[in-house]
């Protein structure tokens, strides 16, 4: 099976606690996988292994069919694995282009000698990537502070896409949003599929996951308890798997 990203037999312990126990899963290009589980099930820990925050105690990570060693968040970014954190990591005091280009600003020569920021270029490129993803931001010159939660989410995602993200990890992307905004972010995730990007979405909102995910991976107490195809299951079944009421399906 041609996975874009695959983890095999990942184990992560914190002292005596095994937060992730022998979990394997994969995501293909253009596929969205929902990662579900109760609080403390180990979802965040698992994805942090992929995004370079934690190093697994056992198991391996494969990206584009090659085993990779992700030692830091920078390593992950360099490979094109981007994580959209709940707090988004945007500089609220800067505008959209400044955030999209943060740390990788485009410079130009002024008067033949001075190296200055190329504001026009960054503005234009930002406009294009937002257009490509069908994202509407009232004015790119507005600071992030002036944007709504969903718009911020969209800016964070566009930044990843602009810098050639091949794989996107979203931990609770809709947790802080209003209903209308949630829908927009989910639409955006759906559009990412058509760009051939692999996505893992962690969410508590059953509705969210069902509307975007192709497959579901369910974790309980650090272990993977089920892997389901979204269209063959329903919310009730998933909930009972999450809380452990139903016997484990292999």
């Amino acid at each position: 099976m041609g996975y874009l990203l695959e983890v095999r037999n990942i184990v992560k312990r914190f002292g005596g606690l095994t937060a992730v126990n022998n979990v394997s899963m994969g995501v293909a290009a253009g596929e969205v996988v929902g990662l579900l589980g109760d609080n403390g099930a180990g979802k965040s820990t698992l994805i942090k292994v992929v995004s370079g925050v934690h190093r697994a105690d056992e198991g391996k990570v494969l990206f584009q069919d090659r085993e990779v060693d992700i030692g830091s968040p920078m390593d992950a970014l360099a490979m094109g694995i981007e994580t959209i954190y709940q707090d988004l990591a945007l500089a609220e005091n800067l505008n959209t282009p400044a955030n999209i280009f943060l740390g990788r600003e485009k410079m130009k020569k002024a008067l033949g000698i001075l190296n200055v920021l190329d504001h026009e270029y960054m503005h234009e490129e930002s406009r294009q990537v937002l257009e490509k993803l069908d994202i509407l931001i009232p004015s790119l010159r507005n600071k992030i502070r002036a944007l709504s939660g969903g718009q911020r989410q969209a800016v964070a995602i566009s930044r990843s896409i602009y810098w050639d993200a091949k794989f996107l990890i979203m931990d609770e992307p809709t947790a802080a949003l209003g209903v209308a905004e949630q829908k927009k972010v989910l639409d955006l995730v759906n559009r990412l599929k058509s760009h051939g990007i692999g996505v893992i979405v962690i969410s508590h909102q059953m509705h969210d996951v069902f509307s975007v995910a192709d497959r579901l991976v369910i974790m309980r107490r650090g272990e993977k308890v089920a892997e389901l195809v979204t269209k063959d299951t329903n919310a009730d079944e998933v909930v009972s798997l999450i809380v452990g009421a139903e016997t484990v399906r292999k």
Binding site: L88, A89, N93, L94, N99, L102, G103, A110, V116
Partner: peptide, 23 residues
């Protein structure tokens, strides 16, 4: 007009964002 200035704003706005942007 410089990266130095831009990064000064970014660090002040969100240290976290600046770090994760590789500054």
């Amino acid at each position: 007009n410089t990266r130095f200035g831009q990064h000064t704003y970014a660090i002040g706005g969100s240290m976290d964002a600046a770090v994760r942007a590789g500054i």
